[in-house]
Nucleic acid binder design. Structure first.
Lengths: 108, 108
DNA sequence: CATAAATATCGTAATATTACAATATTAAAA
DNA sequence: TTTTAATATTGTAATATTACGATATTTATG
């Protein structure tokens, strides 16, 4: 008990859930928004921008990177992060798949 | 420690994170997909469809309902659930706001 | 009213997440 | 090569999430 029963769901469903989950924290939304505004940034920029400790920022960056939402490239002693909009595009595709051609009248 | 520091983020960022979080579980993705396919359903339909116990389904439905992603209307002894695509549209708007007119060349 | 059907709630065990201090790692700069 | 800057990792306390058995609630039906 306590663990998500991932094994009973399809890979596609699990992947989508992981992607949504990665976006399901205000710090990570803020990071993504900051990255969008700055085009790119390093960890220190975020540490200065957000009222969270450096290890916490680093942890959130790692989760976003594992989810494929951001990518980082080494640049001297720092790491330059930027958005991978292709990955977020998968959410677009999913959300579009939920839309109806004709909106049903139930529950309205 | 242990708690998300919501108070340091804007209401908008917190709301978006909550919405993503609500979609961040495979059971809830599956419920949303089933609802899309059936247009509407009751809890028992989902209990028959998904290999999860009834209280677990009920708990997930509650989270989706709290997030505004689904809505339920009483119908006899059962409750008829359906999607609220307007709420999911908020995610569309956010994802669209991340897109660039001109894709930057960083990190590529 | 007793029963049944559908759903919600409670209680709880197992696990996951969040945040951060302390520390390690890595690469440039002095 | 020591120092500095940037970032990652480790360890851990506090809290949240997940799943489900047991039980309560609610509404129709006999």
């Amino acid at each position: 008990m306590g663990t998500t029963k991932s094994e009973v769901f399809s890979e596609k469903v699990n992947d989508l859930a992981s992607l949504f989950k990665a976006m399901g924290h205000p710090a990570r939304i803020a990071i993504v928004q900051f990255l969008r505004a700055q085009e790119k940034c390093i960890c220190t920029d975020l540490v200065n921008e957000l009222p969270l400790a450096q290890p916490t920022i680093s942890q959130h960056l790692k989760e976003l990177k594992n989810a494929g939402i951001i990518q980082g490239s080494v640049s001297g002693t720092s790491i330059c992060y930027c958005l991978n909009l292709d990955k977020l595009g998968e959410l677009d595709v999913f959300l579009a798949s939920l839309k109806y051609d004709q909106v049903p009248t139930c529950c309205s």
